[in-house]
Design a protein around this nucleic acid. Structure first.
Length: 536
RNA sequence: GAGCCUGUAGCUCAGUCGGUAGAGCAUCGGCCUUUUAAGCCGUGGGUCGUGGGUUCGAGUCCCACCGGGCUCACCA
């Protein structure tokens, strides 16, 4: 309790001021008080919105509108998204999330207490209505309500926009608010809702595809003592019971391959992985990875799986193998065709086409750097809109991947597979025995973005151990993202792993492609946000 | 992590040259028994992100901090 000196103007305390001015002081918290008063009034009238436990609708709004027959008795529950009271009658649109239907209320039809309850409604409340279908003067399919059941009271002013001819006024557009209060976004923004729902459907369709192909969906540990399978910085945490530090997984790979070693010949997992790295329009620190492994199969099989999977998902979710995308900035129409086999591009060949650096040049790191300087590659990179700093490259694999990024990726708009990755940056991929220094690995690209990474898996435990040892040497040289040694995984390989094809697909990236979202947060219900010091 | 932009009413936004804040919607009160961005009349609502500084005077200029957006870096 603070002291007030005599003579100092007294500021009314919040609560006191609220009671005194409740009708005039319309801050957000005062609005809440008004709503609470309405709630109390409803309860006095015998209509407690929070008392009702269920309300069965005859059909969805979409269904009611599609099978509309005047005079049909119906029940419908949803959220009030518009509200117009006109003396002794009124209209409200009630939405079940997918669609909305108009409801018409008359004092004469509802009778005394129910009419008062109607007049206490606000946009944002949930209601159940019962009555018959009819057409209004202007021809809108509506429900003539005979009975009203409030099902919840919204205590806040919901930023539900006003709409006419598909144009929405005054909705919620502040991106920060949309992500932090996603429920409001879902209620107010139909497009955002559609994108997020489609993302869920895409995940489901992926499951359908692999289930239909005899794959077993499995779950593997998220807390791992050795976080392998990719090169990324893990999140760290602590396991009290074992007094041990553990990491959150950065990939699914090694555990899934241990299942292959256990003679589960087709396994897949769709799971969250965590990488302690920068957040951007294309990166969320936790994201959903699909990985699938198939015994007695190779990378060619994986290519076919990827083609089939995208085709299957596009058909199941969007009803077509051809996905129409929003036009580019210069207005060019774009579409992606997943019905055809993906184009194949050889990495070194393509780099030579674009830069003049030959496979011969790229066999040795020092020579590659020297030749790149001779050919003026950094300048060419700038011309191509990229950045290539030869001095910051540490090894051949990194340089080649950089060349790929700057010179090859932009050209890969329609679905394509890039093959022929260098061994340095592929510590889990089988060697290409016909091409020294190259692995049996490919990546899929669509719209210039990587969507999958796959290879014929190493099943030679001696080779795998050597690769890990090479990675340890890189780590010793200061590469903090080098792949760690995993003895348990090596033990499984030593017990015998059949030849296997494996592939990882970033589900979020896949969802972005198929929904046309250009920001990863739009395909995540709850993207990672910086914590707010004062939650509102 | 770096650069640029940004933060004003519950929501969407104005705010000129530095002179102590505006609109629409929403809210609240009144009228209105087929409206639909309902309408009409009236009312209230803001420590201008936070903290410093310059100034007679700061929403406005400067600095720091806290959010957010875009681009880049790392990566999928």
């Amino acid at each position: 309790m603070s002291m007030t000196r005599p003579g100092e103007p007294v500021k009314p305390k919040r609560a006191a001021r609220r009671i005194v001015n409740s009708a005039v002081h319309m801050s957000d918290e005062a609005i809440r008080d008004v709503r609470l008063a309405k709630l109390a009034k409803m309860r006095e009238l015998g209509y407690d919105p929070y008392r009702t436990e269920k309300f069965a609708s005859t059909d969805s709004a979409t269904g009611l509108l599609a099978n509309f027959k005047e005079g049909n008795q119906v029940k419908f529950a949803g959220r009030v998204v518009s509200y117009r009271l006109m003396g002794k009658a009124g209209f409200a649109h009630v939405s079940d999330g997918d669609a909305k239907i108009q409801a018409y209320f008359r004092k004469d039809d509802l009778g005394e207490p129910a009419w008062d309850v109607f007049s206490l409604l606000d946009v944002g409340d949930h209601v159940g209505v019962e009555g018959e279908l009819f057409l209004t003067k202007t021809g809108e399919k509506s429900i003539h309500v005979r009975s009203l059941t409030p099902l919840s009271k919204a205590l806040h002013n919901l930023p539900i926009g006003k709409e006419k001819d598909g144009h929405v006024w005054y909705g919620l557009s502040d991106v920060d608010q949309r992500y932090r209060h996603r429920h409001l976004d879902l209620v107010t923004n139909a497009e955002a809702r559609e994108t997020l729902v489609n993302r869920a459907k895409i995940t489901r369709a992926v499951r359908h595809y692999f289930d239909s192909q005899g794959y077993l969906e499995v779950e593997t540990p998220i807390l791992q003592f050795v976080a392998g399978g990719a090169m990324a910085t893990p999140f760290l945490t602590h396991y009290n019971a074992y007094d041990s530090d553990v990491k959150l997984r950065i990939s699914l790979e090694l555990y899934l391959k241990r299942l292959i070693c256990g003679d589960l010949p087709r396994v897949y997992e769709i799971g969250r992985v965590f990488r302690n790295e920068g957040v951007s329009n294309r990166h969320n620190p936790e994201f959903t990875l699909l990985e699938f492994y198939e015994a007695y199969a190779d990378m060619e099989t994986m290519m076919r799986r990827v083609e089939e999977c995208f085709h299957f998902v596009a058909e199941e979710v969007f009803g077509s193998a051809v996905i129409e995308l929003p036009p580019t900035e210069d207005g060019a129409e774009r579409s992606l065709d997943f019905s055809k086999p993906w184009r194949r591009v050889d990495l070194l060949h393509e780099i030579e086409e674009q830069t003049g650096l030959t496979a011969e040049d790229l066999r040795d790191f020092e020579r590659a750097i020297a030749r790149a300087k001779e050919l003026g590659i950094p300048a060419k990179a700038r011309q191509a809109g990229g950045v290539l700093d030869l001095g910051s490259e540490k090894h051949l694999g990194g340089l080649i991947e950089k060349l790929l990024e700057v010179f090859v990726e932009p050209g890969l708009q329609q679905p394509a597979f890039v093959v022929g990755y260098p061994i340095e940056s592929s510590p889990l991929a089988k060697k290409d025995f016909d091409r020294p220094g190259i692995t049996r690995r490919f990546e899929g690209y669509v719209l210039g973005r990587e969507v999958c990474n796959a290879f014929s898996e190493i099943n030679d435990p001696i080779d795998q151990r050597e690769r890990f040892e090479q990675q340890l040497r890189e780590a010793a040289k200061g590469d903090d993202e080098a792949h760690p040694m995993d003895e348990e995984f090596l033990f499984a390989l030593e017990c015998g792993m059949p030849p296997t094809g494996g592939c990882g697909i970033g589900i979020d990236r896949m969802a972005m492609l198929l929904t046309g979202a250009d920001v990863v947060r739009e395909v995540l219900f709850f993207p990672t946000m910086r914590p707010t010091s004062s939650p509102d």
